[in-house]
Amino acid sequence: MRPFTYLRAPDVATAVRAISAEPGAKFIGGGTNLVDLLREDIEQPGTVIDITGLPLTGVEELPDGGIRIGALVRNSHLAAHRLVTTRYPMLSQAILSGASPQLRNMATTGGNLLQRTRCLYFYDGAAACNKREPGSGCDAIGGFNRQHGVLGVSDDCLATHPSDMCVALAALDATVETRSEHGVRRIPLVDLHRLPGTTPHRETVLAADELITAIELPPPPSGAVSRYRKVRDRASYAFALVSVAAVLKVRDGSVSTVRLALGGVAPKPWRAYAAERALLAAPATEESFTRAAEAELTAATARPGNAFKIELARRTIVATLRDLLAEGSAA
């Protein structure tokens, strides 16, 4: 780890001012990702601005029935919050399927949005990585790419976004609120992360001086059932091979509401719009679910190591919708 200057921001205005004044500075919240990256010498900020003292730790009910989550709400707190467990159980499931209790106790909501990929080549300082060192190449492409993405990836980067929470947020139509010296901005979560294209080091649409302050969720669709399902190599403490966040409502045998997002397969939390289009108003049957999954996955591109993810994603989508259909019928 290299030496850096440590600042502690007492309020949002000071935090925003400090980061504007220090190019290359980083905010630190729970530190569960940044400290790791500092120790691996992947992140080398000259200044680290501690924002854990900012008053962004509340979960509030909004007048429209939605909720507002402060950027510094810890993952474990959010997963256990009554407003979340009652209105957005899928979000709670997603958070609890990620990391470990110790990490969730530290990790913040805002930090979770910005966690960086667990691509093994990104973490291997001796490997070529366009994300770590723009223009150096991508060793994952000719290498071991079993963990890598099949949707939205490019010839310059195959990395996946590692978050579980974000996949649920994508399906829940979350909005991200930020502050900078230029004011307040609201960004739909599905637009927060960029696809890699030829610039995989640019991971979000945030400006360098922008601070995430909150996430807002609209009220959940009434009468719908939802679920987060994660498939991984072991029972706990593993990143997703494939995950699915699904919201489903069936009326008279047809799909009246559906929202679907995928994790583990793309550089960002992947809202499966093509699948949603295929499902809306379609009969709620296994055949429709399969057709919808295939509609989404026709765009998938595989490398030798991760071709299985396409089939696994298809099965996970269908299995999750099948379970929701059964749950919705029982209710």
């Binding site: 973490y123 291997d124 001796a126 290498g143 071991f144």
Partner: peptide, 28 residues
């Protein structure tokens, strides 16, 4: 689950961390 896998080009072990080199956890 366990596999201390070399990169097929460079020969470097590419998962030298307990996050990536999976051993069973209690839930397994």
């Amino acid at each position: 689950m366990e596999n201390q896998r070399p990169d097929p080009v460079s020969g470097r072990f590419i998962s030298p961390a307990l996050t990536d080199y999976h051993v069973p956890v209690n839930a397994d």
